[in-house]
Design a protein around this nucleic acid. Structure first.
Lengths: 214, 214
DNA sequence: CTCCAAAATGAACACTGTTCATTTTCGGAG
DNA sequence: CTCCGAAAATGAACAGTGTTCATTTTGGAG
């Protein structure tokens, strides 16, 4: 019965192709502009076919999100080699920021859009997201165990650090750091390159946490 | 020439009514569900009329955003009375978090949506946003001047704190803190009320900054 | 009253996500 | 080879979207 297997393989191939096409379109245009018809045209199938493979736009985007989490995880966890746990933490933040800055639409999909969350609840969509979270927590705990940081609650500190970098990257890609442009504000942070701003602020906060000893 | 004045007053009234209707709809349904036709129906004018007062949906939403910033500012700066600058900082964070949690759709519009930003650039839409930013910075500087915190760059520290609370509230309202629900993760933060999680984390970070002396 | 500019209208256009009756495809049976 | 039937693919149709613009209504001026 090799035929059935071949058919299943073909179905799986098409599923992948659809996600790939959607992901490509995502990098080319903004979220709102990626329509089912455009995805269909890209994979050279009719719109109706997409609905045989994914019940909704939401479900399709959930699959794109899941793939995005995998990319993000494999990109971020590739840290430049360091033994120093504090340095590792700093570099993890930098990789996270870099991913968000370079893939704003994927980042939006992963962390800022409201829609695909309903379906998500408990699928394995978050598998890589959870792995990332665990990586962060383990590095924070390394820092604590090495006596380089002090905290009663390393899990909460991890959450705070995640929130910090997420906050910076989401403000950046939503263009909100434009308040620092022009003459709206009058402060030393004005008219600095925003990429540099968030990277330097990450470094500053880690230094504060490090110097903060017991 | 009282007639012309009356007409201008009426035009201004209608502009306000439109924004009010849009803001109301925002609180009732999610962003994507607020359409021009629904707004028109709510103000009891035809859809074409909206385009006589706002050139597009973006411009209309920019006006809603501007009004939202005013609400947010007047809500947040109403701090419970304290003399202690560190306590003031903590309470500012709490008010900010509270506003976001209680007005998720307005918060999205203010800080997370991509669209209205093109037009925004330099209008007075951000007037209240800037006032808020200045308030934060001035409190941080109070803390430093009172010798309760140490930093070489209070402006950057303000940015970090803004990013932190924005990060927390945006993860919360985007439902991303659901990873702490169920059995996805295994850590002490799991299955805690998320409102409490972000409030407590705000407090923790302020304490860290305070104890971090020299 | 007439006149006319300003204000308001809503049908029309091109798009969206989604459905579903119809057609096409293609392996297996005779 | 023909024929059958199920699985796969199609695209017109539906209700919604933002936006435009020829048309109609309004209401103050002369």
């Amino acid at each position: 019965m090799g035929i059935q297997q071949r058919k299943e393989r073909e179905k799986e191939d098409l599923r992948r192709k659809i996600i790939l096409a959607a992901t490509e379109l995502f990098r080319e245009e903004t979220y709102g502009a990626v329509s089912m018809r455009k995805i269909a045209k890209r994979v050279e199938y009719s719109v109706g076919t997409l609905y045989l493979y994914y019940k909704d736009k939401d479900e399709l985007f959930l699959a794109v999100q899941s793939a995005a989490f995998e990319r993000a995880f494999s990109f971020i966890q590739e840290l430049p080699p360091t033994k120093d746990p504090v340095d590792k933490l700093k570099k993890l933040g930098e990789r996270y920021l870099r991913f968000g800055i370079d893939n704003p639409d994927l980042y939006r999909l992963m962390f800022m859009m409201e829609h695909p969350m309903d379906a998500m609840a408990e699928g394995d969509a978050w598998h890589s997201g959870i792995a990332l979270h665990n990586l962060l927590t383990s590095i924070v705990k390394e820092c604590v165990e090495a006596g380089r940081m002090t905290t009663e609650d390393p899990d909460r500190l991890s959450f705070a650090l995640w929130s910090l970098v997420h906050g910076m990257v989401s403000l950046l890609i939503s263009q909100r750091l434009k308040i620092y442009d022009g003459n709206h504000l009058d402060c030393p942070l004005c008219n600095i390159d925003t990429d540099q701003l968030v990277l330097d602020t990450n470094e500053m906060m880690i230094k504060i946490l490090e110097r903060h000893q017991g």
